[in-house]
Design a protein around this nucleic acid. Sequence first.
DNA 1: AATGTTCTCAACCGCACAAGT
DNA 2: AACTTGTGCGGTTGAGAACAT
Length: 269
Amino acid sequence: MGRAPCCAKVGLHRGPWTAREDSLLSKYIQVHGEGNWRSLPKKAGLFRCGKSCRLRWMNYLRPDIKRGNISPDEEDLIVRMHALLGNRWSLIAGRLPGRTDNEIKNYWNTHLSKRLRDQGTDPSTHKKLSEYRNEPPPMKRRNSNRKQNKSNSEAQKQKVHNPKPTRITSLNSLTMSRNNSFDWTPNEALNGVPWSSSLKGDVDRVGFLIGDDQDPDMVNGSDLECQSGVPLSDHNTTEKLYEDYLQLLIRTEGLDLVQLDSFAESLLI
DNA sequence: AATGTTCTCAACCGCACAAGT
DNA sequence: AACTTGTGCGGTTGAGAACAT
């Protein structure tokens, strides 16, 4: 990549954010919107690197962040989504409105993985530890899935065409953020129908779609809850996502993992 | 009250990728 | 094609809080 680290510049402030810095960042984003993180600190009068600003906004200052303890329902969903998706925190966070990937990651590492272990379950594989009586548990996965993908891709290069979902970079221009508005409803995700018809072209690139039915009501339905940042009041919605995903896994037990991977990725679009 | 240990979580780091030049 | 830029992600760290002795 050949890039100097983002925060290498001397003189930049690091460590905990002050109330004044928070205020400067919030006010700037209220006026100018998200994005252009690299140039934002200078324009906002902050002696921080853009990356740090983005992180602070995403994980702490955003108005739609849900404060307070993670509910049992959320816990349950995190555990089950983790069983399906692994350490894809942003993907899991996308299903928990108002929660950030960092928060979920921390909660997993400090609470949930410990609890699973206490219950006799390997938190990385979600298998019962007793099942490892005759075989050692697999090595803890240190690498992210993306890194894994890279190594896997060497072996699979010729075998499977696995188109990458396109990342929408200009979220700001759509006045959307990752966790709230830029999101599909579970049904949209599972049916392969994006939140906006303008993205339909991208859907083909996702590679693994289920069903052809399009439910026009969904745009005006629960999707709006996401767009407004209002937490899904209906637990059934996330529950349904999980159930559908699980059914998919069961139905397609022999299915190529790469395809499942694509489906998981497609939830991001 | 003092000290040591464990826990929590905000913040940082390095890497990957899409898009632009 | 090669390189740069901007952004996003997951893993890790470390300061402070909470708890135990």
